[in-house]
Design a binder for these strands. Structure first.
Length: 514
RNA sequence: GGGCCGUUAGCUCAGUGGUAGAGCAUCUGACUUUUAAUCAGGUGGUCGCUGGUUCGAUCCCAGCACGGCUCACCA
């Protein structure tokens, strides 16, 4: 992949012309690369292997730095420690027969001090052929410079890997959002805050595992390729198995498989992995995204709300170090307990609609029309209510809020409440104006589940997962189940407004071929 | 998919209807404790692509590509 966009698309003839021109005038990036290739050749001529196999280090640069910083200056001067370290050259400051270079392991940097009279001639020649971005190994003594900078005075220098392309600018870093996503390695190198955000993501994910394992949950892996897509209503990606001559769907949710495991006697399971939905791309949607789903036998959605509060607070404490999250212009307070609000009450709170407007069909349709909701006629009352919620309340729900009171018709896998068969025991968690979690007391009545599937199939089409119904017929204990969108949780914890900023390699259109 | 905005040197950014500038990087030279090192000098651009208007377009217009924001889609 060539990041250079200036080269014209053209015929072979034209390309040849460009090549010929290169040799005389040289295109800019190619000139920079040519400079480095020339140095590479010179190094080889000097007998240097520019890509050696190994270099034993005493410690990583950042570990070394942390340890050495604690040694008092006089002790350092008296008994200079000998070290071997390796890293990427971030900066070179030449001073004639002396030079300084910043060496980094990506976390911290440590200065290398090079003196001509301290090195042999070959090492000095090597140093002069180094570029920003090259990997080197250094052996030397630690000291502090006149200005107090911790440094390693090099006795030995080794080239570990020569870079052929210039690094992004050291001061401003890499700002172009497209380049940052396409060449994430450059983003990570040039923008420390980006690196920190992905480290935060990693801590969050491992924190979830520890939290759930600590409560007796077992991590499992269920199929990514489903013969029947289920567990959600999104459009799936389709693929094909050749020798079985069978269409398969990349999973839109693991739900139906995880519940089979509850049937099978695993009472607490979770899966933390990718889902794929063939829908639009936006700042809150990537076609593949990471979802935590967990199922807990003998629990219900009330217990899940408690667990969710506990888990998210715990994660914020360990990832951010606070229960107050900066979020754009505002802040999110995670202190418990969190607000609970029914779907209807949320609509009423964030609109001028009255309870009567949400009652009979004609009033509901009128309200939906007022908020610009389309395909009104074909949508159920419940769906219209959910649409109204999205149109009025969702974007305002900054503070953590459990939305409850979901209609049965849009919740085919959730169990009804005791006093109202049209409402289910379900909640969605909203924070920062986004849906973060979706949970319910699972429907475990196989006859009722079949009826719901049939109701759904009539309304929206689709195939009934008979294999899942078969499992339910063997008996599933009362169970609470929940899904949490990990990417969005990371967005909240790192204060990023775009999901692309928290996914290392988000889906992008390929650059057009040259 | 719709609307709005953007695309200028490797990177970060200025700028103009008469074919372009800065800082960093790069190259040359000076410099034995610097750290956005400094000083002196130099190289580097079909201003995203294609077409139109114009005597003349990087600039105005249209289409296209890619991206950003937003709306739609998305239990």
């Amino acid at each position: 992949m060539d990041g250079w966009r200036g080269r014209p698309r053209g015929t072979i003839t034209r390309s040849l012309e460009v090549c010929v021109a290169d040799q005389e005038t040289q295109q800019p990036i190619e000139q920079l690369i040519a400079n480095r290739r020339e140095k590479l050749k010179t190094l080889r001529d000097l007998g240097v292997d520019p890509y050696p196999r190994r270099f034993r280090v005493s410690e990583a640069v950042s570990v070394l730095r942390e340890r050495l910083e604690r040694i008092p200056a006089d002790e350092l001067a008296e008994k200079p420690p000998k070290v071997r370290m390796a890293g990427r050259i971030q900066a070179i400051r030449g001073h004639g027969k002396v030079a300084f270079a910043d060496l980094t392991d990506g976390v911290k940097k440590l200065q290398v001090y090079v003196r001509r009279d301290r090195l042999n001639e070959a090492a000095w020649q090597l140093f002069k052929l180094l570029d920003l971005g090259d990997f080197i190994g250094v052996e030397g003594e630690v000291f502090r410079t006149r200005t107090g900078e911790l440094s390693v005075a090099a006795d030995q220098l080794a080239l570990l890997a020569k870079g052929l392309r210039p690094m992004p600018e050291k001061y401003h870093g890499l700002a172009d959002r497209e380049a940052r996503a396409r060449q994430r390695y450059l983003d990570l190198l040039a923008n420390p805050e980006s690196r920190a955000e992905f480290e935060a993501r990693s801590r969050l994910v491992s924190g979830i595992r520890r939290f759930l394992e600590g409560r007796g949950f077992l991590e499992v892996e269920t199929p990514m390729m489903h013969p029947i897509p289920g567990g959600a209503s999104a459009r799936p990606f389709v693929t094909h198995h050749n020798t079985m001559d069978m269409d398969l769907y990349l999973r839109i949710a693991p739900e139906l498989y995880l519940k089979r495991l509850i049937v099978g006697g695993f009472e607490r399971v979770f899966e933390l992995n990718r889902n794929f939905r063939n829908e639009g791309v936006s700042t809150r949607h990537n076609p593949e995204f990471t979802m935590l789903e967990f199922y807990w036998a003998y629990a219900d959605y009330e217990l899940l709300m408690d667990l969710t509060e506990e888990m998210v607070c715990h994660l914020a404490e360990s990832v951010v170090g606070s229960l107050t999250l900066p979020w754009g212009e505002t802040t999110i307070e995670l202190a418990r307990p969190w607000k609970r609000l029914s779907l209807k009450d949320a609509v009423l709170e964030y609109s001028d609609l009255s309870p009567e407007d949400l009652g009979e069909r004609s009033r509901l349709e009128k309200a939906a029309e007022h908020f610009g909701i389309d395909r009104i006629a074909e949508r159920s009352d419940g769906k219209l209510l959910a649409e109204l919620f999205e149109a009025t309340a969702e974007s305002h729900l900054m503070q953590p809020t459990f939305i409850t009171g979901f209609p049965r018709v849009i919740s085919p896998l959730a169990k009804s409440t005791e006093d109202d068969p049209e409402t289910v025991e379900r909640f969605e968690l909203y924070m920062g104006g986004m849906e973060i979690a979706n949970a319910y007391t699972e429907l475990n009545d196989p006859v009722e589940q079949r009826r719901r599937f049939e109701e759904q199939a009539r309304a929206t089409g689709g195939v009934i997962d008979e294999d899942f119904l078969l499992a339910l017929e063997y008996g599933m204990p009362p169970t609470g189940g929940e899904g949490i969108g990990i990417d969005r949780l990371v967005m909240l914890m790192t204060n990023r407004s775009s999901i692309r900023d928290v996914i290392l390699f988000p889906l992008l259109r390929p650059r057009p071929a040259e």
